[in-house]
Nucleic acid binder design. Structure first.
Lengths: 251, 251
DNA sequence: TCCGAAATGTTGTCAGACAACAGTTTTGAG
DNA sequence: CTCAAAACTGTTGTCTGACAACATTTCGGA
């Protein structure tokens, strides 16, 4: 039983089928509620066992693309893509994120995070400030010890988002932060310490914290804007096109 | 017709196991990279067959919680929750979205969408404007015919996001829009037409479009802000706490 | 000691079967 | 003939067993 030379055996068979199924659904422009082929039919069409088909459908279910009803069949969900949002397209698109893509993601983060800082300044409690102070202190220690503080950097931004008391914003910030963990590494690397990138980032953090602590929403937003623009520059991105604040009219 | 309110819906063993596994991982605070028990062990622990366990793990994989390596085992992913972002927690949390939750989601949407409108005004092309005009025209027709235009309403907001030429923002807007399809129904219902909600919404849409068309970023943002605040009011939410615009110093 | 091959363990895939459920058709009582 | 119950068919959900592909460990020989 030699499988057709379609697959190069580079990865899991179920991954391949998942991708093909997803593509097939979107290409066919299947409207919500349409029933898709039975598992048996799909088995024959793709030439795989039912386990693989079920695995693929299971993932689409988790993605929110399809729903299944026992005894009835599988159907396209209300909105394809509803239920969850993923930044990087595809299933295993990990290694190379293009600079344009990264820039786009960063801009989305910019929109949310600046607004979050603004709102955090208005709603933060003493507890929120304590949490931020803690993380800030840990980063200060790391700065003195020239150590790595990527995790704390992430935690600081999440702490800001948490101070909005909007759990959705907090979760989104945590989600976005996770995507940027790798990107923050250069700032806290030994080279980052030497070149002053770490100190620079920390100074920006302090400025955001102080604005939020004072309850000055406008200042908090501007400090967050400045920090994100600097962070983008440290990553080699071009934040000019974001032009949300100062460079607005010049275009 | 449609019998969804099956309250006794205890079935779907795999759903139960998925939930328990997810809960177990988060509760144990398993750090990234930790290996979780083998499928065989999990089978015995939960008293189910391997198929169910595999189904559950498959979903967690789709969620980005865990990764698997053939011949090695399953491991907690780099960041739990990385890979995809879902607004409503849980797998089958569809029917009742609490008002607070809804309000939080709406605020997140507010942050992204107002920024998107601002940027759309700066970057829109003639083609973008054509697309928006098309959708706007369809909504105008629906208004005259007292018809439903929820889909077009959604499409209009996506068209704005598309005009930013930032694919991540566009995709996020499409994602968020899908979550609100149901919520927009009252506006375009027969009652919505009668009470003037539809006409009101349409007027706000036109105002946003004109600002974007003129390339006036500030006006576009303010128009989007006004529209979202009105939309929230139409949904019975309280947009006061967002306080992003009027209470702001930079105006 | 060092290296390679065998042994063991784990996930991935296959195959078949039955259970639970939904929809349709047939049957039987009135 | 009417209509409801029963039988039938088709689909997804779950179980079981087996083997393949891959990773890690163990162990024996040079």
């Amino acid at each position: 039983m030699n499988p057709p030379p379609t697959a190069k055996r580079v990865s899991r068979l179920s991954d391949e089928i998942t991708l093909q199924l997803e593509r097939w659904i979107t290409e066919q422009q299947l409207s919500s509620g349409t029933q898709l082929p039975t598992e048996k039919v799909l088995c024959e069409r793709f030439g795989v066992s039912r386990a693989v088909i079920r695995e693929a459908i299971s993932r689409l279910k988790a993605d929110g693309c399809v729903t299944t009803r026992q005894g009835s069949g599988a159907f396209v969900a209300a909105r394809p893509g509803q239920g969850s949002f993923r930044l990087v397209r595809g299933l295993e698109h990990s290694p190379p994120i293009l600079s344009d893509e990264m820039s786009d993601i960063f801009e989305l983060r910019y929109l949310v995070e600046t607004g979050a800082a603004e709102r955090a300044a208005l709603r933060r409690t003493a507890k929120d400030l304590d949490r931020m102070r803690d993380v800030l202190g840990r980063m200060q220690d790391a700065l003195a010890a020239q150590a790595d503080a990527v995790g704390d950097d992430d935690a600081f931004h999440v702490a800001i988002a948490a101070a909005t008391h909007n759990s959705q914003i907090e979760r989104f910030q945590a989600f976005m932060g996770g995507q940027f963990s790798d990107s923050r590494a250069p700032t806290w690397s030994s080279d980052g310490h030497r070149s002053g990138r770490a100190r620079e980032a920390q100074a920006e953090h302090v400025r955001i914290f102080e604005a939020i602590s004072r309850g000055n929403a406008g200042a908090a937003r501007r400090a967050a804007e400045a920090h994100l623009v600097s962070a983008a520059r440290r990553l080699g991105l071009d934040p000019l096109r974001w032009g949300g604040d100062k460079t607005e009219s010049t275009r």
